[in-house]
């Protein structure tokens, strides 16, 4: 019966509705903030602020709505590996385009 006991020991973590509601409220507030920030004249910082808030919102969704905060290390590593691969591919593509005209200015 040890396997059955192990089953019970590893019941999945159930995220409470209270946490879901708090996260949803935070996401809606952040949406308001990012719209408000877009009406301010910040020059190049407009894009930085908007994307910063978007990254924060996406992180909340992944951690709480998608349960990664309460998941095993395998799941955390999977998400991290995906993020790393995405950033590496975008970063390398962008570095090509940024450096292509180098020396011809």
């Amino acid at each position: 019966m040890s396997e059955l006991e192990a089953n019970h020991a590893e019941e999945p973590h159930i995220v409470s509705p209270k946490i879901y509601a708090m996260i949803a409220a935070t996401l809606l507030i952040c949406t308001g903030l990012t719209v408000a920030a877009s009406y301010l004249e910040l020059g190049p910082w407009n894009a930085v602020v908007a994307l910063g808030i978007a990254v924060f919102k996406a992180t909340l969704v992944v951690l709480f709505f998608m349960h990664i905060k309460y998941s095993s290390n395998l799941m955390k590593l999977t998400v991290g590996a995906g993020l790393f691969t995405f950033l590496a591919l975008v970063g390398m593509s962008m570095s090509d385009y940024i450096s292509r005209a180098w020396g011809s200015f």
């Binding site: 877009s38 978007a54 919102k57 969704v61 709505f65």
Partner: peptide, 25 residues
């Protein structure tokens, strides 16, 4: 399915500022 639906939400979280907001000024 919950994971899928939240992923679709995340895509929009990035589409919204990129398409609508960052060029306002």
């Amino acid at each position: 399915f919950g994971l899928y639906w939240h992923f679709v939400d995340i895509v929009w979280i990035f589409l919204f500022p990129l398409l609508y907001l960052i060029s306002r000024h």
